[in-house]
Amino acid sequence: MKKSLFILMAISLIGLTACGQTASNSSANTASNITNSTQDPSSSKAVTLTDFANRKVTFNTVPQKIVALSNGEMDIIYALGGTLVGRPTATGPVSIQEAKNVEQVGSTHGLDLEKVAYLSPDVVLGNNPLNTKDIPALEGIGSKMVLTNANSIEEVMKQIQLFGQMLQKDDKAAQLNQAIDQKLKDLKSNSATVKPRVLLVYGAPGTYMAALNNSLSGNIVVSAGGENIAADYPKLDSYPQYAQLDTEKIMKSNPQLILIMSHGNPEKVRDGFLKEMQQNAAWSSMDAVKNNQIEILPADLFGTNPGTKVIEALDMMNKLLQAVK
């Protein structure tokens, strides 16, 4: 009897031990599941994309430390919910408050490699083809480069889609592009039959060029309902989105609206351009001059890629066109 009682007690102890181990394992598995569920699922996913230079760029995880060399790319990254560790150097106020205190690192025309190296970014967003030459130096400091450009609204939308893929924010990118697409449809449906004749001048003091339709600003003019009088001008070899100003051709086209844009110093550019116009009596006979319809375009919307703010650029352009006499 005593022997049977001893055996029963032993079996009970073994059962309790097994139950304790099972409960312990269950608790460990639960804790593990909770830990995994709180991790950012995108942080462990590899990202491979093809940039505008047809280069395949692969990231082991979603890039977190990003440098943008122009305003459009900066705008798109923040619009997608991302942030920057380095932004383009600006002389004026920054339109994106979150980027106000971000380190300035130069531009697509000349980046500060020492500053970029200090920031040690996962990726630098540059221009194709301007920054192709910078790829070896950036790879030498352990960073990658994604090249894009924005010579049309369609290319801005492709940038948004590409950066959305890079940040794994595809749904947000689609939402941003849908808003741009809807704006284009609205403008097209409300477009006047007779389109105002526009001369779009890009300038720096002493240098002036006519923007062609293959430039972003020219594309905005056409999309907003205007006629770019320089559409058929021969492009410049060094600046294929622009052409030389041809006074004789401009006189024949007789623009109703002259728009001036610049990266910086817009007032100086305007004053210089008006001075050149005054030196040639032919300009005074044009409708835009007679009706005083010469406007300076804001640099953040037209002197550079505005990114998602291309909607604002389209709205402004449409209002200027509607005001043409």
Results as ranks from 00 to 15, higher is better:
309 K>S: 13
187 L>M: 04
78 Y>L: 15
112 D>C: 08
283 W>R: 11
27 S>G: 00
94 V>D: 15
73 E>C: 09
104 Q>L: 01
50 T>M: 02
300 D>M: 03
85 V>D: 08
124 V>H: 03
169 K>N: 15
200 L>Y: 12
166 M>S: 12
238 S>M: 03
256 Q>G: 10
80 L>N: 10
316 M>R: 01
36 N>A: 15
140 G>S: 13
224 A>S: 08
284 S>D: 02
223 S>Y: 01
262 S>F: 05
252 K>D: 10
122 D>E: 06
279 Q>M: 07
15 G>M: 13
58 T>A: 03
304 T>G: 02
94 V>K: 11
105 V>F: 06
169 K>W: 11
121 P>G: 11
123 V>I: 09
213 N>W: 01
214 N>A: 12
323 A>N: 15
125 L>T: 14
66 I>K: 09
95 S>Y: 04
111 L>R: 08
235 K>W: 11
24 S>V: 10
143 S>N: 09
228 N>V: 05
12 S>C: 09
78 Y>S: 13
324 V>P: 06
79 A>K: 13
39 Q>P: 07
111 L>N: 07
77 I>M: 02
222 V>I: 08
85 V>T: 13
157 M>F: 14
133 K>M: 12
240 P>W: 03
36 N>F: 14
196 P>G: 06
115 K>A: 08
68 A>V: 07
203 G>I: 00
312 E>S: 13
140 G>L: 14
201 V>R: 00
202 Y>T: 06
297 L>M: 02
108 T>P: 03
55 R>W: 10
183 K>W: 03
277 M>F: 00
99 A>P: 13
73 E>V: 04
52 F>P: 05
251 M>Y: 14
295 E>Y: 05
22 T>H: 12
110 G>D: 04
25 N>T: 12
33 N>H: 15
305 N>S: 07
270 R>G: 08
3 K>G: 00
28 A>C: 01
241 Q>S: 11
184 L>I: 08
43 S>K: 12
196 P>F: 07
269 V>Q: 04
177 N>E: 12
275 K>Y: 03
104 Q>Y: 03
5 L>Q: 09
45 K>S: 09
320 L>G: 07
63 P>H: 01
29 N>D: 04
279 Q>A: 15
78 Y>Q: 13
31 A>F: 02
73 E>S: 14
157 M>L: 10
300 D>S: 05
106 G>T: 01
101 N>E: 06
263 H>F: 09
266 P>G: 04
42 S>W: 05
225 G>S: 01
22 T>R: 14
204 A>P: 08
248 E>A: 10
218 G>M: 03
309 K>M: 12
297 L>F: 04
35 T>H: 06
250 I>Y: 04
198 V>W: 00
47 V>E: 05
49 L>E: 11
246 D>I: 11
75 D>M: 12
274 L>A: 06
290 K>N: 07
237 D>M: 06
208 Y>V: 00
179 A>K: 15
114 E>R: 11
74 M>N: 13
43 S>W: 07
294 I>L: 11
76 I>W: 02
262 S>P: 02
6 F>K: 10
110 G>Q: 04
222 V>W: 11
82 G>A: 05
24 S>N: 06
132 T>L: 14
106 G>D: 02
207 T>P: 08
71 N>I: 14
310 V>C: 12
234 P>L: 02
266 P>K: 01
222 V>N: 12
121 P>H: 05
227 E>L: 11
236 L>S: 09
52 F>I: 05
